[in-house]
Amino acid sequence: MSEFHAVEAALWDYLDGLYEGDVDRLARIFLPEAHLYAASADGVSSLPRDVWLDKVRGRKSAKDSGFPSTNCVHWIDVAETTATARVSCSHPPNRFTDTLSLLKMSDGWKVIAKTYHMAPLD
């Protein structure tokens, strides 16, 4: 499998895990050191991976809520042991555009950082 396709597989693991609310799957894809960042009214919102996983664990998944998946991989850029990708998904009432930074680890590609934009669904 090419590195591009390996990164793409990791991205779909992330998107499908998020849609299904599969916290264990998400924990395997995100490195323990990972953080999630977004612009907020107060400046920058920064969430450690485990705090975010607790939020996912505490809510009903989009799939269990009966919402169709809107998951999409827009682009992937691979540079040896690093990759960047843009993906999007929805968890009504919001849609998310994520830019993910990944590292090639001994056990595969893992997310080290996520920046995201959240907006209401149209």
Score class of each variant (00 low, 15 high):
residue 12 W to N: 00
residue 12 W to F: 05
residue 12 W to S: 03
residue 13 D to E: 14
residue 14 Y to T: 04
residue 14 Y to S: 05
residue 14 Y to Q: 05
residue 14 Y to K: 06
residue 15 L to C: 03
residue 15 L to R: 02
residue 16 D to M: 13
residue 17 G to K: 01
residue 18 L to G: 03
residue 18 L to K: 02
residue 18 L to R: 03
residue 19 Y to E: 03
residue 20 E to A: 11
residue 20 E to Q: 13
residue 21 G to D: 07
residue 21 G to R: 01
residue 21 G to T: 06
residue 22 D to C: 06
residue 22 D to T: 02
residue 23 V to Y: 03
residue 23 V to F: 03
residue 24 D to Q: 12
residue 24 D to A: 15
residue 24 D to V: 09
residue 25 R to N: 10
residue 25 R to H: 09
residue 26 L to R: 01
residue 26 L to W: 04
residue 26 L to T: 01
residue 27 A to L: 10
residue 28 R to E: 11
residue 28 R to L: 11
residue 28 R to F: 05
residue 28 R to H: 08
residue 29 I to Y: 00
residue 29 I to V: 14
residue 30 F to H: 12
residue 30 F to S: 06
residue 31 L to K: 11
residue 31 L to M: 13
residue 32 P to W: 10
residue 32 P to V: 12
residue 33 E to M: 10
residue 33 E to H: 06
residue 33 E to R: 13
residue 34 A to S: 13
residue 35 H to M: 15
residue 35 H to N: 15
residue 35 H to G: 13
residue 35 H to L: 15
residue 36 L to Y: 07
residue 36 L to S: 15
residue 36 L to R: 15
residue 36 L to M: 13
residue 37 Y to N: 08
residue 37 Y to I: 14
residue 37 Y to K: 07
residue 38 A to C: 09
residue 38 A to E: 05
residue 39 A to N: 11
residue 40 S to L: 08
residue 40 S to N: 08
residue 41 A to W: 03
residue 41 A to K: 13
residue 42 D to G: 09
residue 42 D to I: 08
residue 43 G to T: 10
residue 45 S to E: 15
residue 45 S to Q: 11
residue 45 S to K: 08
